[in-house]
């Protein structure tokens, strides 16, 4: 843990350096590419309020776009946001369609083999369901049609371990419509997303009744092999945790402050004595 922290501190230093001075030309390809074209291209969700969603003018806004803007500011580049979905986000990164992916992706080892997930994790969430029915435990879903999103990793667990019949759609808009039209009895998804719906008057009477499972950290990712860019992003994440940026964004977008964000904020405060308290 201490060694991990130490390398992060180094990364934080780099980020601090990056935010004051321009990044030197000797760094890796991704960074020089971005500087060269003067534009940072970030893949974010566009159907996942409040992390990434469309505002009334059709612009992508939310917590993750704001984080992306922070990165663009540090690199002194313009920001271009590309909407991604769970089933194509890693491919976009691999193909170079985006430089950076901040798209509510759960950090998993098999994903680390495909893209470079940056440490530390910037956020965390678990799995729960949105329903009107009376379900007390996950096993109650046995044999029930449950809406989901194509490509989400907990689809398998929900059907394999709890016996639910997953009815998966392309995006949350379709899945939520299907839920409202009673195509399924519940919608299995990230608890962070469900919490944001529960506050919405459209969803009055709906509940998130089950214990959250699989509380897992989210990782933002760069293309495999972009070590310098990954290092810079490590620094960015540490800076967000240290400064309480994540907590601030949660409040701004009307979310409860999550235990994970609080914990990370505390952890980094305690670690680095040079930070003002």
């Amino acid at each position: 843990m201490a060694r991990w922290m130490k390398s992060l501190a180094a990364a934080a230093g780099i980020a601090a350096l990056a935010s004051s001075v321009a990044v030197s030309g000797a760094s890796a390809d991704a960074i020089s590419d971005i500087k060269g074209r003067g534009k940072l291209i970030v893949g974010v969700k566009a159907d996942y309020a409040p992390y990434g969603f469309l505002d009334s003018s059709g612009k992508i806004v939310g917590i993750e776009p704001e984080l992306a803007q922070d990165v663009a500011d540090v690199l002194d580049a313009d920001l271009e946001l590309v909407p991604v979905v769970s089933s194509n986000r890693m491919q976009f990164l691999e193909q170079g369609k985006i430089d950076l992916m901040i798209a509510t992706m759960t950090d998993r080892n098999d994903r680390r083999e495909v893209v470079q997930i940056v440490d530390p994790n910037y956020y965390s969430s678990g799995t729960n369901i949105l329903t009107k029915g009376n379900f007390a435990k996950w096993e109650d879903l046995k044999g029930a049609p449950v809406c989901g999103i194509q490509g989400a990793f907990y689809n398998r667990k929900t059907s394999e371990e709890f016996g639910a019949e997953i009815v998966a759609f392309k995006g949350t808009a379709e899945a939520l419509t299907a839920l409202k039209q009673n195509r399924c009895v519940a919608f299995v998804y990230d608890d962070s997303f469900i919490v944001s719906r529960l506050g919405d008057p459209d969803w009055e009477g709906w509940k998130m009744p089950l214990p959250t499972i699989d509380d897992a950290p989210w990782g933002l990712a760069v293309k495999k092999g972009e070590d310098a860019f990954a290092m810079l992003m490590s620094g960015m994440i540490v800076k967000w945790h240290v400064s309480g940026r994540i907590l601030e964004l949660e409040s701004k977008y009307g979310l409860e402050q999550t235990p994970f964000a609080k914990k990370m904020h505390q952890a980094f405060l305690d670690f680095n004595p040079s930070i003002e308290r």
Partner: peptide, 13 residues
């Protein structure tokens, strides 16, 4: 549909 779910789980597109 099934292939899509499998490649999302195992990243073997």
């Amino acid at each position: 549909y099934q292939a899509n779910q499998i490649w999302s789980d195992s990243v073997n597109v």
